[in-house]
Amino acid sequence: QALGAERTPSPYSARESLTPYRLVTSHNNFYEFGMGKGDPKRYAQRFRTDPWRVEISGEVAKPAHYELEDLIQPHALEERIYRMRCVEGWSMVIPWIGVPLADILKRAEPTSRAKYVEFVTLMDPDQMHGQRSGFSTIDWPYREGLRIDEAMHPLTLMAVGLYDNSLPPQNGAPFRLVVPWKYGFKSIKSIVSIRLTETMPATSWNLSAPQEYGFYANVNPAVDHPRWSQATERRLPSPLFNPDIIDTQPFNGYADEVAHLYAGMDLRKWY
């Protein structure tokens, strides 16, 4: 389904060659639909994304259930070309289409007690076979969180499409988060709940392996994951015999925009 996004280049867009659509839509970590990178494309095609309801709740003046189209309708869709850095050491450049999260949150009128935002993915084991697995290390549904200033940052996008199309199911249809300066797992897919909270919300990977994944998960070449060096990354598509290995940038190259959010914080401790 084609989306009419504004085509004028966003000042927030990266000027790098795009990862082809076929790759962006066939290489996904979406464990609700399987463990392999190709599994989500294989198993998510019949995922029902219409109708889709999103609850905005917690520390807001106007908590509400929205039909997704009512949530998106009042806002102009924008195209944002973002680098996407996976914690596993590969990266892509993806043209997302969406709405800044700040615009959506403002409509719900966060209260002064809103310090964090918690996001939750749909829980539907009938459609998502990964949620039925008895051998999962993740306690479903998948959940993620941001600090309120991170959530209100203009780079933080709620995506409903990529390239010129609405999001394919394997990429988190119909409504997902994109936070380009954090590892990909922060950008939670197929969201049904956005809750503003006073305390730091629990996040799925942090619950599963706290020594490996922190709450912040900012891209940081100086802090390695126990299994993956974060100093370099492989940009996909990467030729087999001449892998496209590039140096990873602090905050995934968005340091000018976001480094000030973490002034004074020890990023080795708050990984």
Binding site: L23, K37, W90, R234, L236, S238
Partner: peptide, 15 residues
Amino acid sequence: QVVTDQAGADPAQML
């Protein structure tokens, strides 16, 4: 699979 381009988006990791 590699020669016929059926090795997925990241043949390196697959192999």
